[in-house]
Design a protein around this nucleic acid. Structure first.
Lengths: 333, 333
DNA sequence: AAATTCCCGGAGAACGTTTTCCCGGGGTAG
DNA sequence: CTACCCCGGGAAAACGTTCTCCGGGAATTT
């Protein structure tokens, strides 16, 4: 029933499978009259090409793999959405894999996708170091683009936000609005976002004066950690708490309010990423917006337009944007 | 290089492709000695079976489609995660499609996935009515399980939470904690979750007395709508605001606080779904937790164990759980 | 008018598996 | 000793495409 094949169309239109294939794929010019009959027969029978057979023959599945650390990380869904739309628009389908932040699972998933003959792989690596081998291996087989996070230099093409620039935006803003004693709540992991944001904070914070900056605490990218870190930092009474991402900032915000601190009057709080939650926090969170649609567009562009015989790796950095909200308001002081 | 095929292994191990296939797939018993040599050769060459070829021949891709309305809806990521894990655990891969809440896009995506010869389809329908045709068509081709939302009776197997039971839990809890004048902020759409929760509220609210319940307002499943609805309902001073999902509840919570209302002292607020945001709201949101892991497990079970020649559709309803948090606390009154 | 090119169409190989069918040898039963 | 059967193994068909090669007729060139 739903098993209409090229052969059926050929029989119905009185010509060979080769011709039918040519008409439908537009591979080679074919007589106007025959083309018409073929197209009509195909429509009448409701022919849909079997993509698996097509893939086997043409060595291209029209499928790209997307491997990410944790779909439940609120930054990823919008990215996945943009990627899905961009890829489906070109007729490619997305094989999704969630590796649960575990490099071993990640490697297994990558393997599974490669076995399925994906044309290309989009990967948000779980760990800067431990993902490296799997990435190298995969990059040798298919076009691969690293997204959001890096994985050592020159491993593969990559697209990410300029974390240093983003952190600079935050620090400039805080300085401009009169904050003098910032501190930092970061993530200890080796994920490149953690490392870069941490480093950028250290660099930028120096401008506040030699010993102005308070301590920096390192944990993970979670709300719980944000809460916990505040307990350690608040006694020193910083006037700004810079967080490595929005989840941490939300936690910090919560705990500060519990402790009776006045945000933003007494202390400003900033995040990073601009996840949906950021705008909903109270007070709304000042943060750095990642250009998600641009990240997705650039990633798919890198996948598709890969210059032949172009060995060198491309690393695209997109500039983020500062989103100032209530949590760092000046007027309230 | 990465192109090791069965033929290569056969040549390396000195036997035929048929034998190699049999050894590796374990299809048929084969001599112990030959099996050893074959396995060894395969390992040495690093043979990985080409799943596309396998799929073409065996008419099974080991791939299931997952189509959902909006991956950015915060309820879905955890569901996707569970499904991905369950399916990958059985060696199946997931083709993901996001239809942007649009039934037309949904139909197109379903078609694209079917062309790729998915073995089965998991679908969270975008709309109860407008998704129906596409669902019926798809269900005729592959095993299909509807998730979270329905699509008319008897269309396909389905797994969802018992919305009526969940709403009853909320209303019982409110009644038990002394609330007398509830009102409802729901969604107007025809998504089955919207319909069922709305109906369940109407039924349950009757127990509060003939004219006790305040108005019910219908919009969409969004934070913005929650805020807007409060402006309409608050003048009537309900002592409980029951919301059709957590997003609405978060919006309501925000607006109520802006208006100076005391939550939960003056008015309780409840949500539905228990998305991560619910626990982070201030005050933390009382809500109904959907049993996400169970939903996923049940869905994959229905996909795999489908009784041969079992025509009737199965509709599984899972019981939700009430999560009482600060937004409906009694002590605070 | 003959030769060359061009165009349209078909036959069939190929992609990498799985699976059917067949065959030879050794064991057991008659 | 013959008949049968089982077991391990190979040859080759099949899955549904795409694409190469080839041929025949018309059109163009010389």
């Amino acid at each position: 029933m739903a098993e209409v094949t090229l052969k059926d169309v050929a029989r119905a239109s009185g010509c060979s499978v080769a011709t039918v294939s040519r008409v439908l794929a537009g591979t080679r010019p074919v007589g106007a009259e025959t083309a018409r009959t073929v197209r009509e027969a195909a429509a009448r029978l409701g022919y849909r090409p079997n993509q698996v057979a097509r893939a086997l023959r043409s060595r291209s599945t029209g499928t790209v793999g997307l491997v990410l650390p944790q779909i439940t990380n609120p930054f990823f869904p919008s990215l996945v959405r943009e990627l899905e739309h961009a890829l489906h628009a070109e007729g490619r389908a997305v094989l999704l894999a969630d590796c649960d932040d575990d490099p071993l699972t990640e490697a297994a998933r990558i393997g599974a996708l490669l076995d399925r003959q994906i044309d290309a792989l989009l990967l948000i690596p779980a760990d800067e170091h431990h993902s490296r081998d799997a990435v190298l291996e995969a990059a040798a087989r298919v076009p691969l683009v690293l997204l959001d996070r890096g994985c050592g230099p020159g491993v593969a093409d990559s697209v990410a936000v300029d974390n240093a620039a983003g952190m600079a935006l935050v620090l400039d803003h805080l300085a401009a609005t009169g904050r003098r004693r910032p501190c930092f709540i970061g993530a200890a992991g080796t994920a490149s976002t953690a490392v870069e944001r941490r480093a950028a904070y250290e660099t930028g914070a120096a401008a506040f004066g030699p010993q102005a900056p308070g301590r920096t605490e390192l944990g993970d990218f979670s709300v719980a950690w944000g809460r916990a870190a505040v307990d350690r930092l608040w006694p020193a009474r910083p006037d700004a708490v810079v967080c490595a991402n929005d989840l941490i900032a939300v936690g910090a915000l919560q705990r500060l309010r519990q402790l009776g601190a006045d945000v933003p009057g007494e202390v400003a709080v900033t995040g990073f990423d601009d996840i949906p939650l950021a705008g909903l926090a109270d007070p709304a969170l000042t943060t750095v917006r990642q250009p998600v649609p641009e990240l997705a567009a650039e990633a798919t562009r890198l996948l598709t337009h890969r210059p032949a015989g172009f060995a060198s790796r491309r690393a695209v950095r997109l500039t983020p944007e500062l989103v100032v909200r209530a949590s760092s308001a000046e007027g309230a002081r």
